[in-house]
Design a protein around this nucleic acid. Structure first.
Lengths: 200, 200
DNA sequence: TTATTTTATAAACAGTGTTTAGTAAATTTG
DNA sequence: CAAATTTACTAAACACTGTTTATAAAATAA
């Protein structure tokens, strides 16, 4: 069965080539502005070929989201390393916001873009891990936090971070009449204030 | 000048017909799924006619956003009426979240959708008023809040509310494995907790 | 009534996601 | 090895999209 092994390998390589290229183009030009035809052109295949490996553009987004969630998790592992539970929680939130600042297009496609149908009906690939990281970081902090419920605590922290980044990325903070640098500084201040407020 | 008066009046009526229809369709089917052709068909004009009254689809969104921001402001005026500053602030945040729950498609187009170019270069119509409402509600509360800066205070409250609603609307809270009703309840709890935390 | 301006549209352009029918190459079978 | 079959790929088409242009009809001005 050497031939079917190689064929399977080649199939997986082709899939990797497609989503790798898709991810690059999503980051550079955004999801909506990246067309199947553009992706096909870059990998020097016909547009129809992509449909032999992926059901539709939605599935392409779904797969790229999986890669992106894995990258976020890696950032968490690298940056939220403190042995002190509270400090680790602070590092985690800062890591999340930093990810949004440094990879706005990835963040967009992970948390702002309309969910692909596959993600709604099934599960998000590598997304649970990141949320688990938050939950497991919060748990040992609960006695030092002004929350009684871990669900409320985690959602409060996540929503604040997400709210700040998504308002920034989609340029809604414009109503505050600040320039880019001032906006980033204000967001960082607000994150720090929130971390202060939730502490007992 | 009676004729040009009537013409101006007719022009404004046509504009109202177009954005009124556009708004209805944006709410029912969403911005992306509503096409200029669909709008034209509904008002029984050719697609090209719409371009005599509005520059492009972006401008249509910009105008509808204006209407939507005005509606949000009206909701604020109706629901945040307390004479007690702190209570008024609580009413305001609850009004904001309620607006998101009750008009998810409007909320989407106001705060989540990519900004129209016109809104980036110029100003958002009727958006400043709503943010001003928040600022003016917060100002007399400052001495009772655990914030020193009104900018941080207003952004913290806005970002939390927006974070919760946008994660809900774009179905990201799915990772917490709760049903729709549980999600709404958790969001309301988190709002109440935040209001408790920011108080001195 | 004629000339001019205004208003509306049919048709086209360049793009999109996706499907279908057909071809050429690789593999399996006799 | 040759024939049959499966696999991999693509050209072309379908049904859309936002937008522009050239043209016709209606309303107004001269």
């Amino acid at each position: 069965m050497g031939i079917s092994d190689r064929k399977e390998r080649e199939k997986q390589e082709m899939r990797k080539l497609i989503i790798g290229t898709a991810m690059d183009m999503f980051i550079h030009d955004g999801y909506e502005k990246t067309s199947i035809r553009n992706i096909a052109e870059k990998i020097e295949y016909s547009p129809a070929t992509i449909y032999l490996y992926y059901k539709d553009k939605d599935e392409l987004l779904y797969e790229v989201q999986g890669e992106a969630f894995a990258e976020l998790y890696k950032a968490f592992e690298k940056e939220a390393t403190s042995t002190d539970p509270m400090e680790k929680l602070e590092q985690l939130l800062h890591s999340y916001v930093k990810f949004g600042f440094e990879h706005p297009d990835l963040y967009d496609l992970m948390f702002i873009l309309r969910s692909p149908m596959k993600a709604v009906s099934e599960d998000w690939p590598n997304c649970d891990e990141s949320f688990e990281f938050l939950l497991k970081t919060i748990t040992p902090c609960m006695h030092q936090l002004r929350f009684s419920d871990p669900g409320v605590a985690s959602l409060s922290i996540w929503a604040l971070g997400h709210g700040l980044i998504s308002l920034f990325i989609r340029q809604r903070i414009k109503v505050m009449h600040l320039n880019d640098e001032e906006q980033r500084a204000l967001i960082t201040s607000t994150v720090n204030e929130h971390l202060r407020l939730i502490k007992k």
